[in-house]
Design a protein around this nucleic acid. Structure first.
Length: 878
DNA sequence: GCAAGGTC
């Protein structure tokens, strides 16, 4: 047997480094191999992978979408190939002479699969080396030592469960994605995708939109009044009644009833306290952060799911917080909250709060959530303190959130005093039912939502709910949850209160709200769609595929069409059932009750049946998708030919409005150069075109009707700034030879083109085509300063916060072209900006001159450059 | 170029 070192393999570099530190007592030395860290100490070496270093795919002959029928993918072989070549090569090299291999990947299903992938790479180069598996759910001294003292075997069945998922996801996803894309002739970047996770997620969004569309608002009324003690602030109280089931209701669904109640309330001049209830309520501190809870909390601070995760990853990489992708909501046993709080207390920001937590005369027992898993600890600060200056504002805000959440989980519950007061409006002796014509009849006809008894006690009931914070508890350290009080004064039964400020508000029931990103992630988690590491990315993917727009995400017509097509022919791909079934099958494989082949074969069989139906409807599906795609891009009628005006993308990647009748109709309108256009439902009354919003992150703005904008631009007159150097007064030689003289007097003007771009051009265009470019963005200001050489005013550009000086447009253009020539040299490997400038000083302006120069002469003229270097450049420039 | 899952 080989006597080489022992090799430990982890899932990521970060874990490798920390495990090496623990096992070596911080004596491990880091070395680089193929850009990968290898930690080495006393006969052991440790390498971190980067998650999956091999990926599943079809063999190359299936690559061309047009050469392969999507249905062929169902039974196509699925192969594994290295995706991280450097890491795989390093792993093979290290494994070759290893005397023992220990797999120390994450303690979850995917970690087992990643471990098995590493195992297979090891076996390729070393058939005999013993391979062990260690499992730990947090990288702490105790857990790691314990795990390495009791090694186990790889669980090949658990890994096979993961492989079944890979195969099923690939075959269903690829076959159906290609089918939809081909049927709608959407190839290239604009393919139409579906998958086990993105499908049901998209359906959640589309279903919610359908509910909103179908929503029929109902009117109702709410009555309030203000009550007050003789000397005291008024407090709001709301009318309520008991329905037939005896439940309290505030909404009055009938206008006649509301009118009668309003009258009765107006007639009352006071109210008598009928009931007072006091109770204390405990408000428990929040549970530790897992990924979903973190995304939600960051979402309420205004961060998108994607942004929140990216910031948390930065904080993790910098060592300030623990691993941000976790399902766990229970801190590990060996976490020492007191120590951690004390460490964080060294920060000026957290010092006081830390002290108050430690000061309390009690044991700190952190809260626990329902979810306890083996993958990683909940997200918490590591105790390593960043200086506020080390972090961006956003990073700091998220870091503070994580610290305060940790504090909150170690803090006391808050307690509230709840006070409920019910008062009867007085001054109304007559039962209301007798005053209101036909009210009794109304009551009989209405359903259970109507007032059962408006007047049981000879008056209207009003209620007020007050809350007062008795013990702030965790709110002291965690200000992200509301601790607002609602003050209702102490009153006694029988006490008379003044009644004023009566209002009757007419309201309507509201449709359900769209899912925000964090709500969507919560819904996905509830349905087991995706994982902690992928849910936010799935949402991002829906944006990329033009399935949703704006925030909260709204589905496009394309998304509706995809969901409709799937519902009709491939319901599984948009149903959460597919994941539920897969989870069940994976559990069965992991338990040894089913085999990988059995599960994947059954899945392929199901997919075949889906394709039986689908293939016949290829054209219908394709047409429907294409119609929807067009609807997403249609603004309204073309003023020249009546066809549809569509948002289009130029070859350069910029957006513009063009006619569907092209090439017969060449009508176009410009769109702003920043952002991605989103068509709003709002339509321009004059041109019947949908308004356009430009989505550009924080710089998002509403452009409005593109026709109106183009008309406005047309109305702006050219602004003359000087004389044309080519054909203007005193020009050395008029350009055109048709007898025109310099006296024709061409002038230079700032011109605004319909495309939205601007330039300095000659007023005699097209007879004279002298022109100078201007920046695309910003307002152009013509200043009083003048260029003496060219007799033109200096220009100033207003864009962003600070205006900048463009100066004389001719000088500016000369500098620009000079820089361009400099950069031509920079295209040669080894020549940077400074060297290019030096070469230029030596008279070498372009690549051609460089190639024709004598190496020795040139080297003599340029500081720090030898003749061999010049020859080297000349060789590379060829 | 397809999925979903790791990681950066």
């Amino acid at each position: 047997m080989s006597r080489g070192p022992e090799l430990i393999i982890t899932e990521k570099d970060n874990a490798a480094r920390r495990i090496a530190d623990i096992l070596s007592g911080e004596s491990a030395a880091a070395d680089r191999m193929n850009d990968v860290n290898v930690y080495e100490w006393g006969g052991k070496r440790c390498i971190g992978l980067s998650g999956h270093v091999v990926g599943v795919d079809f063999p190359a002959e299936y690559n061309d979408w047009r050469d392969v029928e999507p249905v062929e993918l169902i039974d196509a072989p699925v192969t594994k190939t290295p995706t991280q070549e450097g890491i795989v090569a390093a792993l093979r090299r290290l494994a070759r002479n290893a005397s023992r291999v220990v797999i120390a990947t994450d303690y979850d299903r995917e970690g087992e699969l990643i471990g098995k992938e590493a195992y297979e790479l090891v076996r390729e180069v070393n058939e005999d080396v013993p391979v062990d598996r260690v499992r730990f759910s947090s990288i702490t001294e105790n857990e790691v030592q314990e795990a390495f003292a009791n090694p186990d075997d790889l669980d090949f069945e658990l890994a096979a469960a993961g492989e079944a998922r890979q195969t099923i996801d690939l075959t269903w996803g690829a076959a159906l994605t290609r089918f939809l894309s081909l049927s709608a002739r959407q190839l290239g970047d604009d393919f139409i995708s579906v998958g086990r996770v993105q499908g049901p997620t998209l359906k959640l969004i589309v279903d919610r939109e359908r509910e909103i569309q179908a929503f029929d608002p109902e009117s109702y009324w709410e009555l309030t009044g203000e009550l007050a003690k003789s000397s005291g602030d008024p407090f709001e109280a709301r009318y309520f009644y008991l329905n037939d089931e005896g439940n309290e209701r505030e909404r009055v669904w009938d206008e006649a009833v509301a009118d009668t109640l309003t009258e009765a309330l107006a007639a009352a001049d006071g109210a008598t306290v009928d009931d007072v209830t006091r109770r204390t309520q405990t408000d428990d501190p929040p549970t530790p952060f897992n990924t979903t809870a973190f995304i939600r909390a960051a979402g309420s601070l205004g961060y998108s799911a994607q942004r929140a995760m990216s910031l948390a990853e930065d904080l993790y990489t910098a060592g300030y917080v623990t691993y941000p992708r976790t399902d766990n909501t229970v801190y590990p046993e060996d976490l020492e909250p007191e120590e951690l709080i004390a460490d964080l207390g060294d920060s000026p920001t957290f010092g006081e709060d830390a002290a108050s937590l430690l000061d309390e005369d009690r044991d700190i027992e952190p809260t626990e959530g329902d979810e306890e898993t083996t993958d990683h600890p909940p997200i918490h600060p590591t105790g390593e303190l960043p200086a506020a200056a080390d972090l961006s504002d956003d990073e700091w805000e998220v870091y503070e959130l994580i610290v305060r959440r940790f504090f909150a989980t170690c803090a006391d519950p808050a307690t509230w005093e709840r006070l409920r007061v019910v008062a009867l409006a007085n001054g109304e002796a007559t039962p209301i039912a007798e005053r209101a014509d036909g009210l009794a009849a109304l009551r009989d006809a209405e359903d259970a939502a109507k007032p059962a008894d408006l007047t049981a006690d000879g008056g209207l009931r009003l209620k007020a709910n007050g809350k007062r914070l008795l013990e702030a508890g965790y709110h002291e350290v965690y200000p992200y949850r509301s601790s607002d009080e609602r003050i209702v004064p102490d009153v006694e039964v029988g006490e008379t209160l003044a009644l004023s400020g009566r209002t009757t508000e007419a309201k309507e029931t509201q449709p359900p709200r769209r899912y925000g990103q964090s709500r969507l992630i919560e819904e996905m988690e509830k349905r087991q769609l995706g994982t902690k590491a992928t849910r936010h990315r799935t949402i991002e993917k829906l944006y990329d595929r033009n399935y949703v727009e704006s925030d909260p995400p709204r589905p496009t017509r394309l998304a509706e069409a995809v969901v409709e097509a799937a519902e009709e022919f491939a319901d599984r791909i948009v149903s959460e059932e597919m994941t539920a079934q897969l989870e069940e099958d994976m559990a069965a494989i992991a338990a040894g009750e089913k085999a990988y082949d059995e599960v994947t074969e059954a899945s392929r069989e199901l997919l075949s049946r889906v394709f039986d139906d689908l293939t016949d409807s290829r054209e219908a599906v394709g047409d429907h998708l294409q119609t929807s795609l067009k609807a997403d891009k249609t603004l309204g009628p073309c003023p020249e030919c009546g066809s549809d005006l569509l948002v289009r993308k130029s070859r350069q990647g910029s957006y513009f409005v063009g006619c569907d009748g092209y090439p017969d109709c060449e009508y176009t309108l410009p769109l702003p150069s920043t952002g991605k256009p989103l068509l709003l439902d709002e339509t321009c009354e004059e041109h019947d075109l949908r308004h356009v919003k430009m989505l550009a992150g924080r710089k998002t703005f509403v452009h409005g009707c593109p026709q109106c904008k183009a008309d406005e631009a047309d109305e702006q007159e050219d602004e003359v700034i000087g004389v044309c150097p080519d054909c203007g007064e005193g020009a050395a030689s008029p350009r055109d030879g048709d007898g025109e003289t310099a006296d024709a007097g061409g002038e230079l003007a700032i011109k605004r083109l319909r495309s939205g771009s601007r330039l300095v051009g000659c007023t005699r265009y097209p007879d004279c085509d002298y022109s100078l470019p201007l920046p695309r963005r910003g307002e152009i200001e013509v200043t009083d300063e003048r260029c003496e050489e060219h007799d033109l005013p200096h220009l100033r550009i207003h864009s962003g916060d600070e205006p900048w000086e463009l100066g004389c447009p001719i000088c500016n253009y000369r500098e620009f072209t000079a820089r361009q020539e400099g950069s031509e040299l920079q295209a040669v490997e080894g020549i940077g900006e400074k060297t290019a400038a030096k070469l230029k000083n030596a008279g070498v302006d372009g690549v051609d001159e460089l190639k024709s120069a004598d190496p020795d002469d040139l080297a003599a003229d340029v500081d720090g450059v030898g003749a061999d270097t010049v020859r080297d450049w000349q060789a590379k420039a060829d």
